[in-house]
Design a protein around this nucleic acid. Structure first.
Length: 483
DNA sequence: ATACATACC
DNA sequence: AACTGGTATGTAT
């Protein structure tokens, strides 16, 4: 990982950081624009060895027809909490009618086909692996697995709390008259729907026009991110009593606590039996000191010996549920085999880097560059075993690596209009860079057209980028070339 | 290194 | 009329 440094982020002074740099960016285009600055990837060590991954349930290679896929998509959504008694046939029908022939869906299908090709390629490569190679790989995995088991920690009590229907809960808190009505936060896209709306089939990630079609009475309210940050901060204040280092997830709607120390001090707790927060204690966790904190009466919690498992557990038993993974190897493995692969987080070298390397380091370095190894295999193995040493849920305290500004605007091919749009976005990005105290090193212009095709063009490295003017100067040539 | 894609909320 | 926006990471070339 190149030792590029930049006049990076002074704000959160991290002493003499040799840390990664950052950048600034902007974008514009005929329908949508998205711009961002990125840095060279963290690089770091990637592990090798050979473990199995499993494909994300995307069908399509000779799989079901498109409408069957759409139906399957819906069925999974109807299985969500609070969706009993929903007329799934009808909803599937409406979703198909309104969205199946959209340019978005067409683009999505194209992406899916690319994934299928990649999967086919991997499977073909796998088939070519000889039996001796397989045996060697099995031995490597067995050895690594033994290492991981030997270093497995089960004494911690990690909790991930998920603020259910968070954005909608905040909206309903402020406008109680909306609470009984179907409500969606968002606009072009549904970010969150309350449980009333979900009964109509409205769900997050759905395009707004489909949601409206599903539920004519649906009320939309725009997202208010500053407010969410505020409410989350208030909730964190409460959680801090239980874990001074409590961290908040990116979208503000979840946080992670390590209750190990709190429980040792305050509660009689049987390590072998695990921990179940009593309803009362959980309520205390959520609401203890202030009613201001009454965010969502239906928060979920995952409780487990590490944050990987706690995060996965928070997704079980919605709404208003909690799931405990007991601190035994058997319980952990049983939980994993009962949990769809889809629920596991993607293996990430960065996560691995973030973990103390007691167990990981040596074998990682040794196997990284061997040919024929599956990248990320060590991470996959860790996830498969439910092994995770991450100290926290979020990456609290990590230095920001990029900052971006994007905007969806009306379709246009007018160069002049696009330049104006670009300028507006440069101003927006400049302002957020200023607010964040960031200076850019590298600039990327991203353009999305009306068929959802995305182009990204990077400016050659140059002087630090700090203002709207500098952003524009670097971005404009990129745009001109695309006109 | 660049472009393109993915995951997550 | 018409499928977000922001950050970080992964893959292919």
């Amino acid at each position: 990982m190149a030792a590029v440094t930049s006049a990076a982020a002074p704000t959160q002074g991290h002493g003499g950081v040799t840390n990664p740099p950052l950048g600034g960016a902007v974008a514009g285009s005929s329908t949508q624009g998205h711009g961002g600055v990125t840095n060279p990837p963290l690089g770091g060590a990637v592990a090798g060895s050979s473990a199995a991954g499993s494909s994300s349930g995307g069908p399509s290679s000779g799989g079901p027809s498109f409408s069957a896929q759409a139906r399957a998509l819906y069925v999974s959504s109807s299985a969500k909490a609070g969706m009993d008694g929903v007329d799934s046939e009808k909803i599937a029908e409406i979703v198909l009618q309104t969205a199946a022939n959209s340019p978005f869906t067409a683009h999505q299908r194209k992406l899916d086909r690319a994934v299928d090709r990649r999967v086919a390629k991997l499977l073909a490569a796998k088939r070519k692996v000889s039996e001796p190679e397989r045996a060697a790989a099995r031995a490597t995995v067995a050895a690594r697995r033994a290492d991981l088991e030997a270093s497995r920690r089960l004494e911690r009590v990690c909790v991930v709390v998920d603020f259910d229907q968070f954005y909608a809960a905040v909206a309903m808190r402020d406008r109680p008259e909306l609470a009984e009505r179907p409500l969606a936060v968002g606009g072009a896209l549904v970010l969150t729907a309350n449980y009333v709306a979900r009964r109509w089939g409205v769900r997050s990630g759905q395009p707004g026009f489909v949601a409206k079609e599903l539920c004519r009475q649906l009320t939309f309210v725009p997202a208010e991110y500053e407010k969410y940050a505020e409410v989350a901060a208030t909730a964190m204040e409460v959680y801090r009593e239980y874990d001074p280092a409590v961290s908040c997830g990116m979208g503000y709607d979840e946080c992670s606590l390590d209750l190990t120390h709190y429980l040792r001090r305050r509660v009689r707790w049987d390590a072998t039996g695990g921990l179940t927060l009593s309803a009362r204690r959980r309520t205390a966790l959520c609401f203890s000191t202030s009613d201001e904190c009454l965010v969502a009466p239906f928060d979920q919690a995952g409780i487990a010996p590490n944050f990987l498992l706690a995060k996965m557990g928070a997704d079980v038993n919605k709404p208003d549920g909690q799931h405990t993974v007991s601190p035994t190897v058997e319980a952990v493995l049983a939980f994993l085999s009962a949990t769809p692969t889809r629920k596991a987080p993607p293996p990430s070298a960065a996560h691995h880097e973030a973990a103390p390397t007691a167990a990981g380091g040596a074998s990682r370095g040794a196997s990284t560059t061997r040919p024929g190894r599956v990248p990320q295999a060590d991470q996959l193995l860790q996830v498969a075993l439910g092994w995770c040493e991450k100290e926290r849920g979020g990456d609290a305290g990590a230095m920001q690596k990029g900052i971006s500004f994007s905007d969806t605007f009306g379709s246009s091919d007018e160069p002049a209009a696009l330049r104006r749009q670009l300028w507006t976005m440069c101003e927006g990005l400049g302002a957020s860079m200023l607010a964040a105290g960031l200076v850019g090193e590298k600039l990327t212009l991203r353009l999305k057209d009306s068929s959802f095709e995305v182009r990204s063009r990077a400016a050659p490295r140059g002087a630090a980028i700090g203002s709207a003017g500098e952003l524009y100067a670097r971005a404009l040539p990129l745009l001109e070339r695309e006109l």
